[in-house]
Design a protein around this nucleic acid. Structure first.
Lengths: 168, 168
DNA sequence: ACGTGACTTCAGAATTTTCTGAAAATTCGG
DNA sequence: CCGAATTTTCAGAAAATTCTGAAGTCACGT
């Protein structure tokens, strides 16, 4: 329990995986800071300090995280510096953002199907591809809906009997 | 319909998206060849020619696609060169391979939770993250199962009444 | 209004990734 | 087994990505 060293390692580890998942390196590390900080919100300067990175790099990273909707700017707290924090639905958002990838794959498959004859093996393969991504895209809304139900149920349970520690 | 130019564009477009999705550049372009070729199988040499890339680059790409399970080596067709083709379940496989990413995110979240006190805001954020990915991981098997049902049903329908053209 | 601190932008540097080319290894037909 | 064709490996080159540092812009507080 609670060792700063461990936290640092876990954060860097996470940043690595996020990078695999398509985020840029600095954006991933920044997101890790948002997750692991013990404050409610952080400023760009604090991120730079924590990551030992330049203000410029942090600026770009924060901007991209804002664009994707993973973090939000906090209503000015009277200070001169901007405060940011992780959004509550960040993970669902991150997941959803991959739908655009699926959409594009689908479009590419359809374009291929259209440019190909029915007896071409490519036509068959592209059709299989299209069918899969069509199916997937159709399933996602329901999946996210189930998540929202699931999570709101959790929140309720939490309020009613205040479990001291669940650990699941 | 059927314009080689269009096909080439669609293929390159797809390769781009696949790259976004985590595949290496050359692996993505190679996968596009497997999809769009009008042959049942292709050799490394043919891929290299099509992509105007070196044999070395193709070798690496094919190897990685084999490892992930997206393509398969064909039982020797009498020729000296190896023949490869896209596997039937390639897309489901590609999708599944992202589960490992989710697994790793989950582990990172759990590590963070363990290294943090219950009253730390980070603890709350990491718990939310863990819950989401736990949920997701739990949903995936059923999702893939539905896909298999779905696709086998399609195949059956195909065999029974031989639709001339569906276009969905 | 003005000074100051924070944020953004951007050119160039550093790093990382990716590809080529050639040599070594492998494999199949003879 | 030998030889030709193919594939694999790998060092170094090329390309793409990412970061820094500094200059410029903006906004707050006085």
């Amino acid at each position: 329990m609670n060792d700063k060293r461990e936290q640092w390692q876990a954060a860097e580890q996470l940043a690595l995986v996020l990078t695999e998942g398509g985020l840029q390196r600095m954006a991933a590390r920044t997101l890790a800071v948002f997750l692991f900080t013990d404050q409610e919100s952080v400023t760009a300067g604090e991120i730079a300090e924590r990551l030992e990175a330049s203000a410029g790099a942090v600026s770009g990273a924060v901007k991209s995280l804002l664009t994707v909707g993973l973090i939000e700017r906090l209503p000015a707290p009277g200070s001169r510096r901007e405060h940011y924090r992780l959004r509550d639905d960040a993970w669902a958002t991150l997941f959803t953002s991959q739908n655009t990838v699926i959409q594009t794959m689908l479009q590419a498959a359809r374009a291929g199907i259209d440019s190909t004859e029915a007896d071409d093996p490519a036509h068959r393969r592209l059709t299989q591809m299209r069918d899969f991504y069509e199916f997937l895209l159709g399933e996602l809304p329901a999946l996210l809906q189930r998540w929202h139900q699931h999570s709101s149920k959790e929140a309720k349970r939490w309020r009613l009997d205040s479990h001291p520690s669940t650990g699941h």
